[in-house]
Amino acid sequence: MSSFFAMGGYAAYIWPAYAVFFIVLIADFIAPSLRRRRNLRELRSRLARQTARQDRVTRTPPASS
């Protein structure tokens, strides 16, 4: 097993290469789902503000008249 990790003396080059491969691809894969969550949260708060404003508009006229 340890000879497998030693990679014939080239461990210092092979394992960083594989680490870069996986780290970059995982980061590339995770980035959009974070962006998606942020976008949807913004959209929801915008919708909430809109409905709140509409509620106010529909409720105010009878109160003022």
Binding site: M7, G8, G9, Y10, Y13, I14, A17, Y18, F21
Partner: peptide
Amino acid sequence: QSDAYRIIFIHVPS
């Protein structure tokens, strides 16, 4: 290249 060539399996596809 003994074991060093094993980088090929990610380098070339990338």
